[in-house]
Structure formats: C-alpha cells, structure tokens
Amino acid sequence: MIKSMTGFGKCSVQLPTKKITVELKSLNSKSIDLNARMPSGYREKELELRKLIAGSLQRGKVDLALYVEMTGEETAAEVNETAVRQYMKQLRDIAEGDEVRLLEMALRFPDAMKTEKEALDETEYEAILEALQGALREINTFRAQEGQVLESDFANRITALNTLLQEVVAMDPDRQATIRERLQKAVQDLKTEVDANRFEQELIYYLEKYDITEEKVRLANHLKYFSETLRSTDSNGKKLGFISQEIGREINTIGSKANYAPMQQLVVQMKDELEKIKEQMLNVL
C-alpha cells in the first residue's frame, strides 16, 4: 500500500485555562523538510517535536503550527505600574489633562505591560504531545487515502503498458518481415549480382541488431515487479521510482531498435503512459 506525501492534520486539546491546537500540512519532498511555527516560550521543545514528526511522516515538506489560546482568567501579562506612573507624570508636565485620559495614553507606550516568562509545565507539554499525536493520526490517514487514489491510477497505467507491450509482441514478426523485404528490395534495386549465402548471413546479422526479444522480456518483468511493489505493505516511492526508470530504459531501446513506424507509434503511447506515472510518482512516500 502506498501513501501520498500530501496531507493535512489538525487536533486540539482543551486545558482549564488554555486551548492547545496543532496543525500539520505536508507536500512532496525528497527528504523530510520541517518548518515550525510556535510561540517563543515553547521553542525549548521544538527539537523533540521535530523528532516525533520526522519519525512518523518520514518524507515531505512539512509545516507545523502550534497555537496556544488563553480561554481562562489566567494571564502572564501584568501592568508595569512603575513605567505607567512615570509616563503619566511626564504627560502631566507637558499638558493638563484628565487622569483617565492620561492613563489611556500611558498604557499605549512601550513597556507599559510586562510579561513574566513561565516555565512550560509537564501537564501543558503532555497536552501538546496529545494534540501532535492526534494531528499525526489525521495526516497519516489523509496520506493513506490519497495513496489509494494514486495506487489505482498506477495500476491502470501499468495495465495499459502491458496491453501495449502485448501489441508490440504481436507486431514483431511483421516488423521483422518488413525489414527483411526492405533490405531485399534495396539489394535488387542495385541491379548487382550478390552471393545468396553471404547476403543471408549479412541479413541475419542486421536483423539481430534490431532484435528486441530481450527488451520485451525485461520490460514485462519490470512491469510485473512494479505491480508487486505497488501491492506491498510498505510505501516504497523511491523503489517504484527506480523501477520506473528501468521501464523507461527498455521502452526507449525498443523505440530505437524498432525501425518500423507502427511499432514506434506504440512506443510513443507507452512513453506517454510512463510519463504520467513519473509525474505522480513525485508525490509518493
């Protein structure tokens, strides 16, 4: 079963005074590429969170967002009374005004509020881990569902390639006969006497250069191996990519040896199917 590298997961955990939300988004990438956005007070746990995400998602360009919303009366921010009184005194020296009005103005100045940095307690960190695990479950489910769509598309295209290969196999005797006739006609047009035995030897040698028996067998094996790997329990995007390259190599060789227009048309169709597989393969885990 294959998985896509595209996915989204979100999970929230409610604490008495805070709501913890974790969001994960992923796109395709050759390796794990993680970008994390979180409040500065939680950065001390970033490395541990990265390791958990990398272990679960393995590959992909991943965006992690951690949101902490205050839902209770508790707050870490306090009025900096000393600074506010000083601001009000300075304002009073400049112009007379209502005390409430002066207070409103003073509160807008820098350092009017002070925030005490609190240590991240164990209960809150456990809530973050719980939210992260929930988001990971969601994104992995999403990836598996997308993988099923990709798997179905790959299976259909491999079936199409097998069908085209069978047409190539059926067409090959006619191709060889056509090449033989073409060479015989070319010799006859020369209007020169040639040794029949020597001509037959040269003809056999020439036909062997354009023989595609090995390519047909190898291509059939590669297509079978691709299907077997596709049905394996693990997602093997890189392995499938390597097999796709081998499939392309055999198709290209058949095309270069064909020397026969109807077969070359089949090769073009095979290349088109393979190109669509390769495009989708970039998104497989």
Rank of each mutant, 00 (worst) to 15 (best):
G248I: 05
K45Y: 05
D93G: 08
N236V: 10
Q264H: 07
D121I: 02
R218L: 12
G237S: 09
S244P: 08
P16Y: 01
L27E: 06
R180N: 01
S31Y: 13
I158K: 10
L266D: 11
G248N: 15
Y210E: 13
M263S: 09
L47M: 10
F154M: 08
S4I: 03
K45C: 03
S4L: 07
A220Y: 07
K191F: 00
I20P: 04
I158G: 06
L57F: 05
I251V: 15
V217W: 12
T71S: 10
L230W: 13
L57M: 13
E208N: 15
L190D: 03
G72Q: 14
L161W: 12
I158L: 14
T163N: 15
R198M: 06
T192F: 01
I251G: 09
R50W: 02
M5G: 03
P16N: 11
A258E: 14
R249F: 08
I128N: 01
A155I: 04
L230H: 12
K191G: 02
L150V: 06
T229A: 11
L165T: 14
L203T: 06
Y67R: 15
Y42Q: 09
V194K: 03
P16V: 00
E246P: 08
D189S: 07
F242Y: 14
T213R: 13
V79D: 08
Y205G: 09
E208F: 09
R198G: 00
D189H: 04
N259W: 13
F8H: 12
I247W: 12
M1Q: 10
V13Q: 14
N197F: 12
R59K: 10
Q184G: 00
I139N: 04
N140P: 01
T141K: 09
L132S: 00
A261F: 14
E181T: 04
M88F: 08
L57Y: 07
T71N: 05
N252V: 09
S29V: 00
F199T: 06
M5V: 02
R218Q: 15
N80Q: 01
T115D: 04
Q269V: 01
M105R: 15
C11I: 02
M113Q: 06
Q280T: 04
R249I: 05
S152C: 06
L230D: 13
E250R: 09
I254G: 10
A144D: 09
V62G: 03
A220Q: 15
R180V: 04
T17F: 03
Y125I: 01
F109V: 02
D211A: 09
E44T: 07
E279K: 02
V100N: 15
L164T: 09
Y87P: 06
I179E: 03
A155S: 15
D121W: 05
D234W: 02
I251E: 14
E46K: 03
Q133T: 02
S235D: 13
N283H: 05
E74I: 07
Q269W: 07
E215V: 08
R108A: 08
R198P: 01
S12N: 11
Q90G: 05
S12C: 13
T253C: 10
K209S: 04
R50V: 00
N80K: 04
Q58V: 12
L207I: 12
R143G: 02
M171G: 01
E146C: 02
V84M: 07
Q264E: 15
Q188L: 07
A160R: 15
E181Q: 10
T6M: 02
E46T: 05
V13C: 09
